[in-house]
């Protein structure tokens, strides 16, 4: 038992590694604050193009979405970070993360929002258009608010996945939580920093998990 505590829950090690773990935690927050909005913007654009665009555009948006849902985000990130420089394009670690998440999570948010838009009855747009609203106004004021509400549990769920996915930024040497925990583990020859990182992720994301459950229950009750 003592061996277990010494290897995984070593208070001394936590104290020692605290500064760099805390810094990693802040990086994870910052990465989330960048990647979630970027993915949402990408998702809204894709959802609008794939539902309201001309036929060719709709097709292209669907193909784009398929492509970036099929490419593993880690592969995409490594390509952007380590592959593009071979073409003379060095976007840097932050650039690679921003572009990669825009492409990958944008495709996922796009699918969720597309389903949401599809769930709004056609009569809603007809009513809005019959009062003189343009297609864009009908989308902005009538369709999108209802679409978002209808798929809110899925949107929050996707956001949870995005925050977890920020840990892949460790492979491009961004000092986020996992990266820092690995550093601390190597420096201390002890697994406690990894456990500490897992606990930190849990504390950060557990409220989101609860929120999803509540939203899902509410959606069930509303049916």
């Amino acid at each position: 038992m003592d061996d277990f505590l010494t290897a995984f829950l070593n208070v001394e090690i936590v104290r020692e590694a605290w500064p760099i773990l805390w810094q990693g935690f802040l990086y994870t927050l910052a990465l989330s604050a960048i990647t979630v909005p970027l993915g949402m913007v990408g998702g809204v654009i894709l959802a609008l193009l794939s539902t309201a665009g001309p036929r060719g555009i709709r097709w292209a948006a669907a193909a784009w979405t398929d492509l970036f849902r099929a490419i593993p985000p880690l592969v995409l990130l490594v390509f952007l970070y380590a592959g593009l420089p071979f073409a003379g394009l060095d976007v840097g670690a932050w650039g690679a993360v921003a572009i990669g998440f825009f492409l990958n999570t944008g495709a996922y948010y796009g699918e969720v929002l597309r389903a949401g838009i599809g769930s709004v009855p056609r009569g809603q747009v007809e009513a809005a258009r019959s009062t003189g609203l343009s297609q864009a106004q009908a989308l902005a004021h009538v369709v999108l608010p209802q679409a978002v509400r209808n798929v809110l549990p899925d949107l929050v769920s996707n956001t949870l996945e995005v925050v977890k996915l920020t840990s892949i930024a460790s492979v491009v040497a961004l000092p986020e939580l996992l990266f820092q925990a690995r550093q601390a583990q190597n420096a201390t020859y002890n697994a406690t920093p990894i456990v500490a990182a897992a606990i930190a992720y849990f504390l950060l994301l557990w409220p989101l998990v609860r929120l999803i459950s509540r939203l899902e229950n509410k959606a069930m009750a509303g049916r």
């Binding site: 009569g123 809603q124 009513a127 258009r129 019959s130 009062t131 003189g132 009538v142 608010p145 209802q146």
Partner: peptide
């Protein structure tokens, strides 16, 4: 057409009120 539709009111069988 958006300007023209201001002059034409329409009421639908299924009401189509905005639920939000």
């Amino acid at each position: 057409i958006n300007a023209a539709r201001r002059r034409i009111g329409m009421v639908f069988q299924s009401f189509n009120l905005y639920p939000h």
